[in-house]
């Protein structure tokens, strides 16, 4: 009797703890939705309430879309993240294949350099890369947003670890069948590595969709702005920060990721656990 009692008590305690953690994580999002639904007067009122007295979400959204070309910014986000991911895969897969399956002089050294590359934060190289783009005359363009990220050392590392687990016999069988080395990368290794590519895609897309730092540095023109810059735009307004439309815009830009997550939830979790194991 007392046994089941203590079990339920512990279960309750455990759930309370988890709920507290979840609430802490969700609080900013809830606050975002709440603020996006309030008119300006309520946002600045001194009393704290979550549910708006006057529901102003549609007004705020309308204002957000009116003040900034949000659709254009979302499109920019898609163009940039997809280009980055595609180019990253095109570079990382052949590189990972070479590091995992080919025998050549200096392979271990190269792999050590890849590992070393993972340790370098992007901010550390930001200024040299910026100067380089300036010299080449590519600043303030899609290329400036995409090119610096095409070589992902993390991607090379992740794919190399995965390719290591693909049996050598499979590669040899492909060679016997007449598939070229590049053909092996795309026709044999890529299909075998779909879970790893998915996991990498999740990391890449999330990181570059949400990136604020790099676009802020290299962009000037308004029409090239990525979603996070678009949100910041509302803060920089001379008329003072309009929090309602800002939060509404923030909701809009995180929506694609949230929707994508809901659709691909299983894949998403598989991918993340995969990178945890490997």
């Amino acid at each position: 009797m007392s046994h089941t009692h203590s079990v339920t008590l512990r279960a309750i305690l455990r759930h309370l703890l988890l709920i507290a953690g979840a609430a802490l994580m969700l609080a900013p999002f809830i606050w975002m939705i709440s603020t996006a639904s309030k008119p300006q007067t309520e946002i600045f009122s001194s009393e704290l309430h979550l549910i708006p007295h006057q529901f102003a979400l549609w007004d705020n959204l309308r204002e957000a879309f009116a003040k900034a070309n949000l659709l254009r910014f979302l499109l920019n986000g898609v163009i940039v993240t997809v280009s980055i991911f595609v180019l990253q895969v095109m570079v990382a897969l052949p590189a990972a294949y070479a590091l995992a399956k080919l025998r050549f002089l200096g392979r271990e050294t190269l792999f050590a350099l890849v590992l070393f590359g993972i340790l370098i934060p992007p901010q550390a190289t930001a200024i040299p890369v910026f100067l380089l783009l300036h010299k080449v005359g590519l600043l303030d363009s899609y290329a400036a947003l995409v090119l610096p990220f095409t070589i992902s050392v993390f991607g090379i590392f992740l794919m190399r670890q995965f390719f290591k687990t693909v049996p050598d016999d499979l590669v040899d069988a492909a060679r016997m069948d007449g598939i070229s080395e590049f053909g092996i990368v795309w026709r044999v290794m890529l299909p075998a590595a779909i879970p790893a590519v998915t996991a990498f895609g999740i990391f890449s897309v999330v990181a570059h969709w949400n990136d604020y730092f790099w676009p802020l540095i290299v962009l000037n023109s308004e029409q090239l702005r990525t979603p996070p810059l678009a949100v910041a735009h509302f803060r920089n307004n001379e008329a003072g920060t309009s929090y309602g439309p800002l939060m509404a815009a923030a909701m809009v830009i995180i929506a694609p990721l949230v929707i994508a997550f809901l659709f691909a939830q299983r894949r998403f979790i598989e991918g993340i656990t995969l990178t945890g194991i490997k």
Partner: peptide
């Protein structure tokens, strides 16, 4: 000469079938 150009066929211990095909 490349393996495929030698016109030999090999059967592996692990069979080495393409898992996605």
């Amino acid at each position: 000469i490349r393996p495929s150009a030698r016109n030999l066929a090999m059967v592996f211990q692990s069979y080495a079938l393409y898992p996605h095909l």
